[in-house]
Structures are given as C-alpha cells and as structure tokens.
Design a binder for these strands. Structure first.
Length: 480
RNA sequence: CGGGGCGUGGCGCAGUCUGGUAGCGCACAGCGUUUGGGACGCUGGGGUCGUGGGUUCGAAUCCCUCCGCCCCGACCA
C-alpha cells in the first residue's frame, strides 16, 4: 500500500529520503537560513536518544564532558598546515561585533581541535596530568556547497572528543577504544546498523591527523555513509599548540592527541538503513516511543470500556516499555495506523470492543508493514510478549541490514569489475596504489576508498589498479 | 562554481502563451453523521500572486532589475 507523499525508493531514492524526513515530521528546512534545518520534536527526540546512548559509553570509557567557545580566533585555525587547508574554504567568519570591526576576526568553529589545543597547552604540565579525556556536545558550522537534511547541513550537532596522551601507543589505544567500544558498539547494538571498521586512506583522512579510523555503513542504494570517525592526531596539534609535558625523567615531551566525533548525520544513516516506502522505521532500542496504543470504539459507552481496559493494560508497562496512547478523538483508527507506521513506531497495539470480549489485542510490527505484520494475541502475558517482540524486531532489523550489505558487497579483481560493482554496492579488492591513483579512480567512477578494513585476509593478491602484489584490501564505494 | 527547475492562502498546484472581479485539491474552524487500514455532508475563515521599477484605462499575466529556494554535478561529517 503506497503511502501518500512518499516517493517509492525504486523510483527516486533521493526524493524518497527527503519525503521521509518531511512526512515523518523529523525536520523542516530552515528556509531563511541557507543550508540549515529545524530539528522538529520528533527528529530531535531521535538525536536525544543517540546522545544518551553515546554519552553513556563515552563516560563508561572514562571521559568527562566540558564545553568550549563557539568562536575561535581566526589565527588559531592557521597554526596547523593541513588543518587550514582542509577547513579554510568552509568556515564562516565573524568580522564585526558591538558596532565595530574586530581587530582579529573569529571563525565559527567547524571543529574544535585548535581552540581546545590552546587550552590543553595551559592545562597539561606533567605526565601525571595525562591522559586528559574530555568530550564536548556542541554545534559546529561548515559552509558546504550542497546540503541535505541530516546528512550534510551548514550547522550540525555532534559530539567531539579531544584527548591528550603521553605516548603514541596510548593515543592509538584511545583512538581504537572509541572506534570499537563507543561508536561501533552503539551504532550496531542500538541503531541496528552494521558497520565496517577501518582505516582511512591518506586521501580521505582528517586534515592534520596521523591516522583516521572510521565506521562505514551501507545505505539502501548501495552507497557508503561514514557514520563515525576517530583520529590519532599524532603530535601534529601538540606541536602547533605547544602541548607539552614533563615526563618521569624531567624531560619536556610533546604530547600525543586524539579527536573523534559523530554527528546528527547518524539520523540520516538511520533513515537510509531501515526505512521503507511506508515511512520511517526506528529500531526499538533507540525508539523514543516503542509501543503505540490505538483504542477503537464506536460510541461513548464503548469508549469508556475500551479506555478502561487500556488503563489496566498500560499500568503494567510503566518503567518497562516506552509507550504512548493515541486517544485523539477526531481521527479514525485507520488514519492513526498509517500515521504511526509513517513515523516508525516499532509496535502498534490495537484494542477494540471485539478484543474486550475475547480478552485479546491486535499487535502490528513495523518491520513488517501493512496487514502482514498484524496478529491477534491474548491480553494475558502481553507485557512479556511485547518486550520479547521488541528485541526480536531489533535483531531482525540488524540482520536484514547485514544481509543486504553482504549481498551488495563483492570481491573484485579487475578494474572493470570495480566500475560495475560501485554502481550498486561495495567493491572489496587488493590495493597498492597511490593517492594519485585513487583520485584518478574517483574521477572515472565517482567511488573512493571508504576504508581499509581492520579485518584483513592473511594472504596476498594483486592490486586492482597497479597489479602489484599486496596483502592489503580496501573497500571502494560511492559515498554520501 | 557549472547545469536544470521553481517562486500564486499553511502545503501541493492551475491560471501567464492570448492583460479584464484570484481559483482548485489537501489542511484548518464550526455543526452533524461516522470510527477494526488514510471517513462523509453542509457552512466558514484565510492570499502584499518573491522584490523594485516600467508599459497600460486596467498587470499574477507583457518588458526590465534584483532577490530567494530546490534538484543534479565538483567539495564535504
């Protein structure tokens, strides 16, 4: 049953995405502010759920939250060569305030390595001060040429972690800890999005980083979406901002720093991984509302009987399920079914006069839209049934996404095959080429190396481009 | 920055070619009947036709200026 206002994925995937954002009421174009969106309550609730899950993990791994200024002296950005080059074109500047031109313009942060580096240089004195493990939840601004709701907006929300360590090994351990125990763990377990953990190529790494790690997800059109990054910054920023410490032997050393972030882009990943032509699909772990109850009645007498039963039923749910009772009187049940399907609530419970008689309810699971996912079950033991079903849906969504990704991932051994494969999915191949080679491939195929997976085969093969023997495999794909 | 499209009630559009009282669908408000997969009837409210100028007795419509937004591509979380 095609939904009104949603372009089918097969017809126009990009338009489908924009339709979901609008129809599920997640966001509005800011209109008067180019490239920005308004996060509407439904969309913002998703971000809050993401924040909660990440914040718990960030703290569980020993980090604390702090907050740094939105404005950064322009000169700060210039201190790290690659960093300037990477971000200068897309920063917005504040040149005038208080009715006067400023002596030095500020930039609105595109990321905070520089200003945080400045303060870290003041805060770090001794090896006893390390590691310094701080995270900040913030908004940042990047003047991108082309924007899309959640995936790329001029202003976006994110968390950025910035840490300082005494040794390279410590920094590397931190970078990987975040990648595995915070990002991949959260995205896979809570958002039900399978990811490939890997290292970025030289061409794709963060400006100023020694090494960038990432998690990459596949969207339903076969394109890749970077869902999180964790950078080992080496000593580059420590040198630029003079972050030094005195070690056990009373010698002054440059520190090693890391930074890592995920953004509201994850909402885009969520939409493009699970949703369908009927609307949004939210995995139960993340869903702000997991169960919606639609009462059905024809008159006041039935209404009071049904609502009474709803009261009794939901009393048991408090503290166990996140639920909502849709008691709006001016809408028909059919309308509500469609609306909650569109908004991606994992389970819908319907209860009407017939159910009261039989001691049953109807339950419908969102991952099986329409009447197919609907069944009648006894009211007896409903709470446990729902709890179990939520878990089942969570797993089913993950499995479905994983099966899809595997089906659209192929090992390729010739350049021709690679060209074909990136049309609709991930191409995995041996690689021993240069950054120049990668650029040429991007020009010819619009695909880039998404990552060098951490899981590598233990045998050698021939580089798809140069023919050289190598043990390194990479994933090529078109990216968002 | 290159290519394309569009600005008309809240949303989606028609009307522009060929100037003559601003219209349709949805949404909204009131009343009544409805209610197990997007209900129906009646009544009603709401528009500087993106901006500025010009032509004309008369401009949404013709001419000129400017502005904005969306989509596709290069760039990017």
């Amino acid at each position: 049953m095609p939904k009104e206002g949603i372009t089918p994925r097969a017809q126009d995937y990009s338009q489908w995405y924009l339709d979901i954002v609008q129809q599920a009421d997640l966001a509005d174009y800011a209109e008067v502010v180019k490239g920005c969106i308004v996060f509407k309550p439904t969309g913002y609730a998703l971000w809050e759920a993401i924040q909660r899950g990440l914040d718990d993990r960030i703290k569980a791994t020993g980090h604390v939250n702090a907050y740094f200024p939105l404005l950064i002296p322009k000169s700060f950005l210039m201190k790290e060569a690659e960093h300037v080059e990477g971000f200068a074109p897309e920063v917005a500047e504040v040149t005038r305030a208080g009715g006067e031109d400023l002596a030095e313009p500020y930039v609105i942060r595109p990321t905070s390595e520089t200003i945080i580096g400045y303060f870290y240089s003041k805060w770090v004195r001794s090896y006893r001060d390390l590691p310094l493990l701080i995270n900040q939840w913030a908004n940042v601004m990047r003047w991108e040429m082309r924007t899309r709701p959640f995936l790329r907006t001029t202003e976006f929300l994110w968390q950025e972690g910035h840490t300082v360590h005494a040794t390279e090994e410590d920094a590397e351990r931190e970078t990987l800890l975040i990648l595995h125990d915070v990002y991949a763990d959260f995205v896979e377990k809570e958002m039900a999005i399978p990811v490939i953990r890997g290292l970025k190529s030289e061409k794709e790494k963060f400006p100023g980083a020694l090494r960038s790690y990432c998690i990459e997800a596949m969207m339903q059109d076969g394109r890749a979406l970077q869902a999180g990054t964790s950078h080992n910054l080496g000593q580059n920023f420590a040198r630029a901002f003079d972050i030094t410490y005195t070690d056990q032997h009373n010698t002054i050393q440059y520190a090693w720093t890391t930074s890592w972030g995920v953004s509201t882009r994850l909402i885009g990943a969520l939409i493009m991984t699970h949703s369908d032509d009927e609307g949004l699909v939210i995995p139960p772990h993340l869903a702000p509302t997991q169960v919606v109850v639609v009462p059905i009645y024809r008159n006041d007498a039935e209404r009071s009987t049904v609502m009474e039963a709803v009261q009794r039923m939901t009393a048991e749910w408090k503290g166990r399920l996140r639920f909502k009772v849709d008691d709006r009187d001016n809408l028909t049940p059919g309308f509500k079914f469609n609306e909650w399907e569109l908004k991606g609530i994992p389970i819908r419970v319907e209860i009407g006069p017939k159910d009261i008689e039989k001691g049953s309810v109807a339950i419908a699971r969102r991952d099986q839209p329409g009447r197919e996912g609907k069944s009648f079950v006894p009211q007896e033991g409903l709470t446990n049934r729902l709890t179990a079903l939520l878990e089942e849906i969570q797993q089913a969504l993950y499995r479905r996404a994983l099966t899809f990704r595997d089906a659209r991932t192929a090992d390729v051994t010739t350049y021709e095959e690679l060209k074909q494969q990136v049309e609709h999915g991930f191409a995995r191949c041996y690689w021993a080429g240069t950054t120049e080679d990668e650029k040429r491939i991007q020009e010819e195929t619009r695909a880039t190396i998404r990552c060098i997976p951490l899981d590598q085969p233990q045998q050698a093969g021939r580089c798809i481009y140069t023919g050289k023997e190598t043990t390194q495999q990479v994933i090529f794909a078109r990216a968002y």
